[in-house]
Write a protein that binds this DNA or RNA. Structure first.
Ligand SMILES: [Mn+2]
Ligand SMILES: [Mn+2]
Length: 535
DNA sequence: GTTCGAC
DNA sequence: GTCGAACAACGCGCA
DNA sequence: TGCGCG
């Protein structure tokens, strides 16, 4: 007999569920014997064109045609259920199947996307921390990943995922995870039997996971690995790296308690922070040199006793510069600035985690050269929406003749930084940025708000223009933030911004490596200073 | 993390 | 000498 | 004037 059949080639796992990763493995190995062809439609049979026949009829003929094939045949009839869609879907969800395809029984055959069929996914999507892994002797490699989720600062166990990665991906994951075992510990709520087999890692990587639902202990059921959540930064054409941290400077790095961990038992060590700032110094220093700087210090490593410091302190190394100026009350106070690599690197010893800068230089305090629109998403706003908002504001600012730059805030928000010519004082800049922000909020009141009150901020993005006042600061480019996993406030090109899944993936651990190839997208920002239109 | 004053 | 306490921001907008 | 906020 002669037939044209529509179907799909799959590889089944032990439970008879088709797995794309197993298909990839089979193809890579040339293991054709593992393939199955699931036939779901019949287009031609013995010279008859059946494409105008109703689906029900075509499937009946297909079933008949394949009826002689055994249960182990490489060709299988893809059976269907008529009606009862809800129940079938519920069943598919329960089994951890990918979803259900529904087709109109009376429809003719048309290739491509039509309204006569629809695919409904039964799986939930989520991103989970990779908390550990197990290995198998058989495969001589990765067997499963242990997953976790942070809940009020504590990592909780969420079950294993042992499917969804092909051999190459598994090898890759293993290579990324092995170095993370040092300093790791188990999350909360790990069952005894898991405790024995799992190799815990420091919780620095996240995975995209599909799963059916959760058990009563919140572990995922039918979890499928769908890829590592990773940030890629593009390399700009003019990524010339100017060396600001010399070998001699690196030799001066010294900290007490280098192995003390901050922010929990699997957190970064004091030495990790010192090393981070040494590695990003070439990119960060141009943005902080000569500016008044405030610090967030966490000498004890406990988040609740971090403190903000704007004035000189006793015991401070002489390499950190100080100067005096008056505050709004007219009192003369001492302030800090970083003037060279030595002073910058010396700060790690004092538990400095965050750097915050004024939008001006100490030599011209009252001629600011930067303004910042700090986008703070309220409850219920996704990262995607903040990005979209930032891109919108970018266009508005460009329409005013300005050159806005973007960075992640280190939290959930985005900072839009705009270099301006040093022609206005703080009052004017503050007024102008207030007016711009209010105009944005007025034109899209259900997206933006400019009032701080937490109530108005639900489901909205707070445009915080208050950074643009004398003595106010915002997190410096490349500054870490004092919270779990030390995310970095990371300058990114506008196109990279849109490719970021989760800003916390840019952190003390990942960023130095990324920057080594990408360079600083904010390099020479001062060349893009424009006049800010003021009233 | 550092200093300073009390013991 | 050792130990423990003290110390480490502030300007803006709104109620 | 006081308070919340970053
Ligand atoms: Mn913010
Ligand atoms: Mn803010």
């Amino acid at each position: 007999r002669e037939a044209v059949i529509d179907g799909e080639i799959v590889v089944l796992d032990a439970k008879g569920i088709s797995r794309f990763a197993l298909l990839q493995d089979a193809l890579a190995e040339g293991a054709g014997n593992k393939l199955h062809f699931y036939a779901f439609d019949l287009l031609h049979l013995d010279g008859w064109d059946l494409r105008k026949a109703p689906l029900g009829r075509r499937k009946a003929l297909l079933s008949q045609l394949l009826s002689g094939l055994g249960a182990n045949s490489a060709i299988q009839f893809s059976d269907h259920v008529e009606g009862d869609g809800q129940a079938l879907y519920a069943q598919a969800s329960e089994m951890g199947l990918e979803g259900v395809v529904s087709k109109r029984a009376t429809a003719i055959y048309q290739s491509g996307r039509t309204k006569t069929w629809t695919k409904i996914k039964a799986l939930k999507n989520g991103d989970f921390i990779i908390a550990g892994y197990t290995t198998s002797d058989a495969a001589e490699g990765l067997a499963a990943l242990g997953l976790g989720e942070f809940e009020d600062g504590e990592l909780h166990y969420r079950g294993k995922v042992g499917t969804g990665f092909d051999a190459a991906t598994a090898a890759d994951l293993l290579a990324r995870l092995e170095p993370l075992r040092a300093g790791a510990s188990a999350p909360e709520g790990v069952p005894r039997e898991i405790m024995r087999e799992m190799n815990w890692v420091r919780p620095l990587l996240s995975a995209h996971i599909h799963y059916a639902n959760r058990t009563t202990d919140n572990a995922l059921r039918h979890a499928v690995f769908r890829g590592l959540r990773d940030v890629g930064l593009s390399t700009p054409v003019s990524a010339k790296r100017k060396r600001l941290i010399a070998e001699a400077d690196l030799a001066t790095i010294w900290v007490t308690n280098p192995t003390r961990r901050l922010f929990g038992k699997t957190g970064p060590t004091k030495l990790d922070i010192a090393v981070y700032y040494a590695l990003v110094g070439d990119f960060m220093l141009p943005h902080i040199l000569g500016r008044p700087v405030s610090l967030v210090r966490c000498p004890t490593g406990k988040p609740q006793d971090c403190f903000f410091q704007r004035h000189a302190f006793t015991g401070m190394p002489s390499s950190v510069a100080t100067f005096e100026t008056t505050n709004s009350e007219g009192e003369t106070k001492s302030y800090l600035s970083v003037e060279d690599a030595k002073g910058y690197l010396a700060l790690a010893q004092f538990g400095v985690v965050e750097f915050h800068t004024w939008g001006t230089h100490r030599t011209r305090l009252d001629r600011p050269d930067l303004i910042v629109f700090d986008l703070d998403p309220g409850e219920g706003i996704s990262w995607r929406e903040v990005v979209e908002a930032a891109v919108h504001i970018r266009a508005e600012l460009e329409a005013m003749g300005l050159m806005p730059f973007a960075k992640t805030s280190g939290g959930k928000g985005i900072h839009i930084t705009v270099p301006v010519t040093q022609k206005q004082n703080w009052k004017k800049l503050h007024q102008a940025t207030s007016a711009i922000s209010s105009a944005l909020a007025t034109s899209a009141p259900d997206i933006f708000t400019t009032t701080m009150g937490k109530d108005n901020r639900k489901r909205r993005i707070f445009i915080d223009y208050h950074r643009n006042a004398r003595g106010h600061t915002s997190a410096a480019p490349y500054s870490l933030r004092a919270r779990t996993n030390l995310p970095a406030s990371t300058p990114v090109s506008w196109s990279d911004l849109e490719s970021i899944d989760a800003p916390e993936d840019l952190n003390y651990s990942s960023l130095p490596g990324l920057l080594a190839t990408s360079g600083d997208p904010w390099a020479n920002m001062e060349d893009f200073a424009r006049d800010l239109p003021v009233l």
